[in-house]
Amino acid sequence: MKKLKATKIGNNHYQVDLRGWMCPYPKYAIEILLEKLPSASCMDLLVDCPAATKDVPEVIKSRCCNVQEVIPISDGEWRIRVNK
């Protein structure tokens, strides 16, 4: 089974690569990741499932965190930046 990991890409700024995990995995993953993410941190979530660009921000907002941006980074791939 693929193991996921967080990468530190800046000060209090992390990246989790969920590319290859089709929907609804990203929607279920974000709930756990938000719990684990330290406060006052920023996380880039990389996804390649179109529905995740809608589902994941909805979960983030429902957990009172902030979706900074959802941008395409390549064909069929997006970066969702979240602030906690």
Binding site: K8, I9, G10, Q15, R79
Partner: peptide
Amino acid sequence: ALEGEAVPP
């Protein structure tokens, strides 16, 4: 978390 590069657009 280990340090790494951000995936660029």
